[in-house]
């Protein structure tokens, strides 16, 4: 019995060390990026590479915000991503309410249609959407960046899963209390579904912040670029200025990492809820 216990603790130690090595691999590049972003240009091309600069310079960050349009890009991203997040939470929770608590003909069929949309790769609708948005004159507008993402099948699916765990008696009690559906939605369902709404919001924020292809093709002027698109155009302009590019990456990734680290519990629970709903 004792031998078995020691064996288990040795195995655990080995696994712990292996996991640490893994964590070094997943997080190391972030540290390296941060280190590089403060290096003076000359130091980048030394061999062997130095991990920490002997003479750290914040100049790249100053350049990003003063001479390059990074501040504007961050503003754009915040406007676009916050709008999308709010719209998705509203639109998806309303639809999920209908699918969870209303009785009407064609409910299951419509839900299946929404689910099937999850299987359509976004690149399939990319070209028609681009042509349409271009014809609407929405190139280089917030509308063009926001509206195509204001609805998400995944969001409906995620919220419906959660809504279905709300006891139907609560809905009935609210009906007896004199609530019409919009009041039940507003005063009973939404307050009770806060964890799921939070998970969807964080998920939408992170994935939209990182969204690239759509803003790439629907923005032409630097004033309307989102952070990620601005970062990719830095790459075109300063292809070998690695410290600047690394500083840009830090700026692009930072807000999302903060949101994620603050809300990782509900983010992950949202993701996994989506997967177990698949049963």
């Amino acid at each position: 019995m004792i031998r078995r216990k020691t064996k288990k603790s040795i195995v655990d130690w080995v696994l712990f060390v292996l996991l640490l090595v893994g964590a070094l691999a997943t997080c190391g590049p972030f540290a390296w990026t941060l280190a590089t972003s403060f290096k003076p240009d000359a130091e980048v091309f030394t061999y062997p590479p130095q991990l920490i600069s002997s003479n750290p310079q914040p100049g790249n960050y100053v350049d990003l915000f003063l001479t390059l349009p990074m501040a504007r890009a961050i503003f754009n991203s915040l406007v676009v991503v916050t709008s999308i997040t709010i719209l998705q939470v509203i639109v998806c929770s309303m639809a999920a309410y209908a699918f969870s608590f209303l009785r009407f003909r064609g409910r299951e069929a419509l839900f299946v249609v929404f689910l099937m949309a999850l299987m359509v790769p976004p690149q399939v609708t990319l070209i028609p959407n681009f042509i349409m948005v271009r014809n609407f004159g929405w190139i280089d507008t917030y509308r063009g960046l926001i509206l195509p993402f204001a609805f998400s099948s995944f969001g409906v699916f995620l919220l419906r899963q959660y809504f279905l765990t709300i006891a139907s008696e609560l809905i009935e009690a609210a009906k007896l209390d004199g609530c019409k559906h919009w009041k039940i939605y507003l005063f009973v369902v939404l307050p009770l579904a806060r964890p799921a709404l939070g998970a969807l919001a964080i998920f939408a924020f992170v994935s939209q912040w990182n969204n690239f292809l759509w803003p790439l093709i629907t923005t032409t002027s630097p004033e309307m670029q989102t952070v990620v698109v601005a970062l990719s155009s830095l790459r075109g302009q300063f292809s070998t200025d690695w410290p600047l590019l690394m500083a840009g990456s830090i700026v692009a990734v930072g807000p999302v990492l903060i949101v994620f680290i603050l809300g990782n519990r509900s983010f992950i629970s949202g993701l996994t809820a989506g997967s177990f709903g698949g049963r």
Binding site: F212, L231, A252, L257
Partner: peptide, 9 residues
């Protein structure tokens, strides 16, 4: 962390 990082970055 890498999964929430922008792929471009």
């Amino acid at each position: 962390l890498p999964a929430v990082t922008s792929t471009i970055a």
